[in-house]
Design a protein around this nucleic acid. Structure first.
Lengths: 170, 170
DNA sequence: CTAATCTTTCAAAATATTTTGAAAGTTCAA
DNA sequence: TTGAACTTTCAAAATATTTTGAAAGATTAG
């Protein structure tokens, strides 16, 4: 396989994987494109390379910037904006974890807290106890995941690959 | 809030969260319904309670059984099949992790392996080195996640809440 | 065997999500 | 100012996913 071919395949594949973890295809493809590009790219270049519309690039670039996965670059003497991708895979991973946590864990825990507010008079029932036990089990698990996500997010790479992975080792 | 009200809210909420982690709404709602039901339910009961079609219940029940989140129950003297949900939240979590790993990590690593097969003559280029470095960084991170998922999946609850969480503790 | 009861399938319909593209908005050099 | 170059917005179109429901397939009691 040629290098360029591999890069193209990478962009396509990253787009597909993105959809598996809640990132839309174009957003993931733009991100992949920035990852394999040596130079920052303009909106027009991205439109051309991915064959998508201007609006699509614009919206998804904003999302990428919002996630911290891309940044705007202005070049002196150039009118158009350029975009560069975060190339440090560790940082990319941390940012993705952060967003997923925000979308997947936080709202879950919020809802669980609300569900615990049940009328006093019903609290004698066995059925109540079973229900609350389940809610609390879920929340306890969610809390653990939250802590793990937090730790991973703040940790540095060497703690992760060293200390943590040694502990996890088979 | 009344207990029944809370249960209904839980079913609705679980449906919404499901979609955030790649499970469709009905599948997650059926799962939630089984979680809050004291007795196993029939297809007709689920149709009635969730107000969805027979085909929908049937397809999503199969998926739940496939994931190991529900099981078929036959009652002596009853013609219809009943379904019960896995109530142990720890086991539920383990099964969800297993499926997500299968969908999110395995195919990624497979693709990355394929992308490394680049023509010899291009391997001198700096551009090649940068690309391969990135692919390997991603794979190394994916491998770590894979190991963590594996460990979590095989671990027992006490190791998770005890040993691991102590290590992660802030 | 037959009919009643229950389960499964899948093409078509409904719904949800993503993408387009043209118009409006902004910025800046002249 | 003006207008060229660029960015943003968002309603409508395209696409993807989920759901329906009726028909076909199984199973069992009689």
């Amino acid at each position: 396989m040629k290098l360029d071919e591999a890069k193209t395949k990478f962009v396509e594949a990253w787009g597909t994987f993105g959809t598996n973890w809640g990132i839309n295809r174009t957003m993931a493809q733009i991100h992949a494109l920035l990852l394999v590009s040596n130079e920052p790219l303009t909106t027009d270049q991205i439109m051309e390379l991915l064959d998508v519309s201007r609006g699509n690039v614009n919206m998804n670039m904003r999302a990428l910037i919002d996630w911290g996965l891309a940044e705007r670059i202005t070049k002196l003497g150039e009118r158009a904006e350029f975009f560069a991708g975060e190339k440090d895979i560790w940082k990319v991973a941390v940012k993705i974890i952060r967003e997923r946590r925000k979308r997947e864990i936080d709202p879950l825990r919020k809802t669980l807290r609300e569900l615990k507010m049940i009328d006093d008079k019903e609290q004698k029932k066995d059925e109540y106890k079973t229900f609350i036990k389940m809610i609390e089990d879920i929340d306890s698990y969610a809390e653990s995941m939250d802590r793990i996500a937090d730790k991973l997010t703040l940790a540095d790479q060497s703690w992760f690959y060293g200390t943590l992975m040694k502990m996890i080792a088979k």
